[in-house]
Design a protein around this nucleic acid. Sequence first.
RNA 1: GUCCCCGUAGCUCAGCUGGAUAGAGCACUGGUUUCCUAAACCAGGGGUCGCAGGUUCAAAUCCUGCCGGGGACGCCA
Length: 593
Amino acid sequence: MNIFRRFEAITRAEIEALAKAGALPAGLDLSALSVDPPREAAHGDLSTNAAMVLAKPAGKPPRAIADLLAERLRMIPDVTEVTVAGPGFINLRLAPEVWRAELATLLRAGREYGKAAIGHGQAVNVEYVSANPTGPLHVGHARGTVVGDALANLLAFAGYRVTREYYINDAGAQVDALAVSAYARYLEALGTSMDEAAFARLVPGRDWAYRGEYLVPLGAALAAHHGRDLAGKNEAVWLPIVRDQAIAAMMALIREDLAALGVRHDIFSSERALVDAGAVDAAVKVLESRGLIYTGVLEPPKGKKPDDWEPRPQTLFRATQFGDEVDRPLKKSDGSWTYFATDLAYHFDKWRRGFQVMIDVWGADHGGYIKRMQAGVKALTEDAAALDVKICQLVKLLENGQPAKMSKRAGTFVTLRDLIEAVGKDVVRFIMLTRRNDASLDFDLVKAREQSRDNPVFYVQYAHARCRSVLRHAHELYPDAALDGAALASSPLARLEDRAEIGLIQVLAQWPRVVESAALAHEPHRIAFYLSEVAAAFHGLWTRGKDEAQLRFLIESDRPLTMARLALVEGVASIVAAGLSIMGVAPVEEMRE
RNA sequence: GUCCCCGUAGCUCAGCUGGAUAGAGCACUGGUUUCCUAAACCAGGGGUCGCAGGUUCAAAUCCUGCCGGGGACGCCA
C-alpha cells in the first residue's frame, strides 16, 4: 500500500472512531475523501479534505471537524505535525523515517514498485493502429500506435489483463482498390509499360489508386508466382487472388513497421473473416430481437448537403435510444453492410470474447463516430460493456519550427519508417506522449534530437544516465559492495537528512499514485510528465552537489553515507526505467555517443 | 444547421473524477563549472485560467449560453 492510500485508510478509521465516540454521526459518506500531496510543499507532506467533505452531512463547520480529527491524527506515531488550514484542510507532516522506509520498499520491490491492483485482473481490450492494409504505416498512424501501446502497457501495470488488438479492414472497397493497383504492377512486371492510358485499357472502369513504389515488389512477386496466368483475364478471376496476396504483403509490411516501433499485438482480427463467419448477421439479429432495427428514411444532413442526396428507405439502427443524434444505416444502397454494421459485429465479437472494457484508439477524423459506436455497444451488450474511445489529434511535423518537408518526392507520403530512421524509435515514442491525446502535437525533428532541457526525451534519459554513471563510479570505488536494490535497501538510510533528499523520495513515492490515476483516466501521457518531474528533482539535487561538496552522492571518506545516497540514486533510476518501460522506451546507460 | 475536441504567462503546454496564494519549460534578467560534461542547476519579473451567468462552504475544473480555432456530419473506411 502506498503512503497516500495508507493515510487515507488511517483517516477513515479515525473518522469512524469519532463516530463511534458520538462526536460525529455514524455512516457518513466518505467516498469524496482524499489524501493528496498539497500543492504547496510548505503546507506539509500530506493533506486531506476530510473535514470539508464531512461538514455538510455532519452538520458541523469544517474547522470544528478538522480540529477533532487533527487531535486524533496527532496520536499517529508517524505523524510529526498536524495543522488545520484554510477552509478546513488538515495538513500532516510525516517523520522522515516514513519516507526513508518508502525508499526501502521501492528498492526491494524494484520494477514491481507501483504495480497496482486496481484492474483486479479484469480483461481489457485495447484496439489500436488498425490501419487499412493498403500500404506501409505513415506518420499519421504513429501517434495512435504509441498511445495505444503505452496505454496497454499502463493498464497491464495497473493490474488489468490486457489484450492488444489490431483490426484489419480487409473487406471493403479499399482492398479492392489495392488489388487493382497491385494488378497494375503485376502487368508491369510482365513487361507491359503501365501508364494512365494502358491502365484504362487493361483494367477498365477502375482507378489506379495506390501508385506508391511499395507495390512494385508485390507486382514482381505476383508475376513470379502466377506467370502470365492472370493477365488478360476477367477481373472476377484475378481480383480475389491478387487481393489476398496483396493484403498479406501489406500486413507483412505493416508488421515490420510495428516491430520497428517496438509494438506487438496479441491479435490481428480480420474483418473479412468476421463477415464470412456471419458475425454481422448475428449482431444484427440480436438488435432485431430487441426491436432496435427498422426501415425508415433519414433527413438529409444539414449544412453541407451531398449533391446526390435522395431520400430512400434504409435499414436503420435506433442509435438515438442510446444517446446518438440520429439513427444509423446498416446497409448501403447496393444491399451490402455498411462499415458501421461490420464494426458493430466486431465489437459484439469482442464482447463475446469476454471483454467488458474495450478501448479503441482512433484518429481525429473519426471523432464523429464515437457516439454511434458507443450506442451500438450499449445496445448489443445491454449496457454491460464499456467502450472508451481515445481520439488522437494531428501531429504536425516540424523542422526548427517550420513545417517539415520529409517527402522524398512529390506524392510520396512520409512513412513511419522514415520518421524512425530520422530520430529513432525511442524518441518517436516519447514525443508522442508529451501531449494529451486529444490535443494536437508539434513534433519538431530538430528539437527531438537536440540535447537540451528543451527536449524532454533527453532530459529524462539524461537523469537516468547520470544515475547509472554514479552507480558505475561507486562500483569502481567499492568493488566488493553489492549495489543492487535489495542490498541498497538495507543501507543506513537515516543518513539521508537533507530536505532535498527527502523531497526527492517524496517525488518517487508518488509513482504508485501516478500509475493509478493515469490508468483510471486512460491517459498514458501522465507518465511522461511525471518522469520530467522526477528528472527535474534529481538534476536539482545533482547540481547542488557542485556547490556543496558534502551533498555529492559519492563521499569516499564515508562509505555508509555513500551507500544511503546510492540507494536514492538507484531509486531514481528504477522509477525512471519503470516509467520509460510503460512508454515503451529503453532507458539509456550513458549519453556519450 | 447539429455534434465532438480545444481556448490557462509573450510562446509551447500541464493541472480539469471541484479544494488553499493557478504550475512547468522556452524566451527575458541575474547568478552557479571536481560525480556525465554550463547537454545541467538556482533566483527574479510575468496571469481578467476566452466571455457571461448558474450550482457549491469552495469552480481553471461541474452545468447553461455566447465568442474564437480545429474536426466530423446517409450509401468511403
